[in-house]
Computed example of a mutant assay.
Amino acid sequence: MATILVVDDSASLRGMVVFTLKHEGYEVLEAENGQQALDIAAENKFDLVLADVNMPIMDGITFCTELRKRPSARFTPVLMLTTDSSMEMKQKGKQAGATGWLVKPFNPEKLISTIKRVVR
C-alpha cells in the first residue's frame, strides 16, 4: 500500500487525517510544519503528500517549492489540504508544484477517492 506524508501544524486535524488514511490501509508519516516535512523527505520515500498551507516555521507553499527541487520528489503528488480556498492562493500552490487542492474541513470519502485517483 502507498505511503503518505501528512503535513499540518494542527495535531487534531493531522490525527483525523492519519486515522482516515490508516483505516484505508495507507502507511502514514507525519510532520507538523514544512521544515520538518523536508527533513522527513530526506530520509524517507512516500507516494503522496497532503500538506496544509498555513503553518509556522515553513508554510505549505514554500515546502512544496522546496520539495520539487529534490529529484526524488519532483513528481510526487502534493495535495494541499487547507482552509484557504482563494484563487490567488490556489494559483500560488500551482506555481509551487501542487498537484491538487482540497478544502478543510475534509470529507473522508472525498479525500480517499481523490487519493485513489492521484496515487496509482
Rank of each mutant, 00 (worst) to 15 (best):
D9A: 15
Y26L: 03
A11G: 13
K22R: 12
E32A: 15
V17F: 07
G15D: 01
S10G: 03
Y26H: 10
V17C: 06
R14G: 00
E32Y: 13
G25K: 01
E24P: 02
D9K: 13
G34Q: 03
L21Q: 01
L13G: 07
R14S: 02
T20V: 05
E30A: 09
Q36H: 05
V28C: 14
M16H: 09
V18P: 07
S10Y: 06
G34E: 06
D9P: 09
Q35L: 09
M16V: 13
E32F: 08
V28T: 14
E27K: 15
A37Y: 14
L29N: 13
D9M: 07
A31I: 09
I40K: 10
G25S: 03
N33T: 05
R14F: 06
L13N: 13
Q36V: 05
V17Q: 11
L13D: 15
E30P: 05
A11W: 12
E24Q: 14
E30C: 03
L13V: 09
Y26N: 07
A41H: 11
L13P: 04
S10A: 03
G34P: 05
G15V: 08
L21T: 02
K22W: 06
A31S: 11
T20S: 15
F19W: 15
G34Y: 01
D39F: 06
D39L: 10
A42V: 00
G34N: 04
L21C: 01
E27Q: 15
T20C: 11
V18D: 01
H23A: 15
Y26C: 00
Q36F: 01
E32N: 10
D39G: 13
F19D: 15
A37L: 05
E27F: 04
R14Y: 01
S12W: 08
L38S: 03
M16P: 03
L38P: 00
A37D: 11
S12C: 11
L21I: 00
L13F: 09
E24I: 07
V28I: 07
A31R: 03
S12K: 06
E32V: 12
Q35G: 07
S12F: 05
Y26P: 04
D39Y: 07
Q35D: 07
V17R: 06
E32M: 13
L21Y: 00
I40F: 04
K22P: 13
T20W: 02
N33C: 14
N33H: 12
E32P: 05
V17T: 08
N33W: 04
G34H: 04
T20Q: 05
F19C: 04
E24D: 03
G15Y: 03
H23Y: 07
N33Y: 03
D39C: 12
G25Q: 01
D9T: 08
E24H: 04
H23I: 14
E27C: 00
L38D: 05
D9Y: 09
Y26T: 14
K22N: 05
V28A: 07
A11N: 11
S12N: 07
I40N: 07
I40T: 12
V18S: 02
A42K: 12
E30V: 05
R14E: 01
S12D: 07
G34R: 11
D39A: 15
I40H: 02
L21M: 02
